[in-house]
Simulated assay, not measured.
Amino acid sequence: MKISSDYTSNRAWLRDVVGNQPMILRSVSALEFLQLFVGYFSENKVEVYALEESPEENIQCHIVENLDTIEYIRFENVLCSSPSQAVNDMLSDFEHSDETALVEALSKYYYSHEESFSGLNIKKENQKQFEELKDWAINYFEVEKIVPRSLHLSYQTPTALGNMSQTELNTALQEGYESALTGKKYSVEEVNQIMKEEFKQKANV
Rank of each mutant, 00 (worst) to 15 (best):
M1H: 13
K2N: 07
S4G: 04
S5Q: 08
S5F: 04
S9G: 01
R11T: 14
L14C: 02
D16K: 13
V17F: 03
G19W: 14
N20W: 10
P22F: 13
I24L: 05
R26P: 00
V28L: 04
S29D: 04
E32N: 07
Y40N: 00
E43W: 04
A50Y: 09
P55N: 12
E57D: 14
E57L: 12
C61I: 10
I63D: 03
D68K: 15
C80K: 04
S81D: 03
S82H: 04
P83Q: 07
V87N: 02
V87I: 15
N88A: 08
M90T: 02
S92N: 15
S97A: 15
S97Y: 06
D98K: 02
E99Y: 12
A105P: 00
L106H: 02
Y109N: 03
Y109H: 14
Y109S: 05
Y109L: 09
S116P: 03
S118D: 13
E125W: 07
K128I: 09
Q129A: 09
F130G: 00
E132S: 14
E132K: 14
D135G: 06
W136G: 01
W136D: 02
N139F: 13
E144C: 03
I146S: 03
R149T: 08
H152K: 13
M164V: 04
Q166V: 09
T167H: 08
E168Y: 11
L169F: 13
L169Y: 11
Q174L: 15
E175P: 00
E175K: 13
G176K: 11
G176Q: 11
T182R: 08
E189H: 09
E190M: 10
M195N: 07
M195E: 04
K196M: 11
E197S: 07
